[in-house]
Design a protein around this nucleic acid. Structure first.
Lengths: 256, 256
DNA sequence: CGTTCGATTGAGGAAGATCAATTAATGTGG
DNA sequence: CCACATTAATTGATCTTCCTCAATCGAACG
């Protein structure tokens, strides 16, 4: 992680009018509407998946987009030289497989991390349907746009946050995703090993473990049950403020 | 950077059939075709920009997509707390502003880094045109898809490469982008300060400077002219192999 | 010709990786 | 149900990479 070098003379906070965020209810509604619209206009093929199941693999011919109706899924990017990295987590209502459109071939693995249902949508049929139903096209573009915006947030976190804060931010994001979908957010079952989390966040499994221990010591999170995979998050705000604290350890700047 | 922890039992190299890559000629052709199609089907508004000009800013209402007809441009992501990061570089033929679709508001700054021409396309008109011309919609999806795939490559680099290799990879990517567009790739004018490059790559300006010095010492690159912004890249392959060398310093593994 | 900004280089320090040992949880066959 | 093997997680000690601070140099510009 490097210092937030001032690459622009104007402080960002000063010129960015915080974009108005939909609140949770809206997101849940949007997802429900999306699923309903897809189901009504298209021949959706449903598939039940279990933890570890491959939804698609890098290199496979692209023919379908997928939408997660329930469950949880990770996206893993692979380099030809063997490096691999978890580059995304997907929740109910999220689309999978956009990356395959450009080269007619998937460039990532998508792996289920829990029991769930995936809707498969033939891309050619989707295109047809978009011609007939502009709302469908809007919705599709919106989903792609959202994914891009989120990827950039991820890059920002990877580059500007220290390890502890990155783990906190990761938990905050996850519980946010749950909240948006109307699920309880005070308890969170990590369905990834420390190694996977570390891979996702660009750090080692030991660093993840230490970060979690520290967060627990500071009462920002707690472990539920005996396994160390179930977390209690009494206050999501505490996670956010932990992140904020770690990027401004010496906040005593007079002007600016 | 962390070790490439084996998060999956199967070595990636073994199961990923290297996707067939278009070669340079195809990319140049695709870009030319895209621009022609846009120009013929839409009311494109042209705008000449110079280094430092703002194409759009985070927070601004989203109304247009942009396509770079010439020049070079950076995308800067801003966090509400003031952190900012360069999250993308755009070349001729690249689209800008997709991130604005989802919340009707741009979430990044787009800043020109050189004299060039930007085509502005009203999003509502584009949607209309997509209804009439399926080819246009295909092309649009392809552009979005390509951007997502590239963002993931970027994350992979950020998380798995040490600083030197990240700089080398950055130069390789840049010169690749030039090659794809039929431009000469043996010389490259960096239009960014060391601080900007460092911000983009998640490291400090000193580390960038040292990495470049080392690459020059190893004859992978050379400095042209007196300023340190013009680079000579005698052999792009040397950059790639530098990257490969740095991820496998002890390659003597018997089996696997 | 001085001022300013960007780049380079060195020395020291800190965050996080690596190596290694221990403990906890999970699964297996008897 | 228990001994045992296996995998995940924790924690500590050490080492490496990269960040931080600081000085110097060069180029561009008024």
């Amino acid at each position: 992680m490097q210092t937030a070098a001032a690459i622009s003379p104007v402080p960002a906070a000063a010129r960015m009018p915080r974009p108005t965020r939909r609140d949770e209810g809206d997101v849940a509604q949007r997802i429900a509407d999306t699923l309903k619209l897809l189901d009504s206009k298209l021949a959706v093929q449903r598939r039940v998946v279990h933890a570890g199941d491959v939804i698609f693999r890098a290199g496979q011919a692209f023919g379908h987009l997928h939408v997660l109706n329930s469950g949880l899924c990770k996206i893993v990017n692979l380099a030809p030289d063997g490096r691999e990295q978890v580059v995304g987590l997907k929740f109910r209502g999220d689309w999978l497989g956009f990356d395959g459109i450009a080269n007619s071939r998937h460039s990532c693995d998508a792996i289920a991390m829990d029991t769930g249902e995936v809707w498969m949508i033939r891309y050619d049929q989707l295109l047809d349907a978009c011609q007939r139903h502009p709302a469908l096209m809007l919705l599709l573009h919106e989903a792609m746009s959202r994914e891009m915006a989120h990827d950039r947030e991820t890059m920002l976190s990877l580059c500007t946050l220290p390890a502890d804060a990155r783990v906190a931010e990761f938990l905050r994001y996850w519980s946010d995703a749950l909240a948006e979908r109307g699920l309880r957010t005070d308890q969170l079952m990590l369905r990834m090993t420390r190694a996977e989390i570390g891979n996702y966040l660009g750090m080692t499994l030991e660093t993840v473990s230490r970060a979690l221990s520290r967060l627990a010591r500071d009462k920002v999170i707690a472990f539920a049950g005996k396994g160390r995979r179930d977390l209690l998050i009494p206050d999501v705000g505490a996670l956010s403020s932990f992140v904020q604290r770690s990027i401004a350890p010496a906040p005593t700047l007079s002007a600016e």
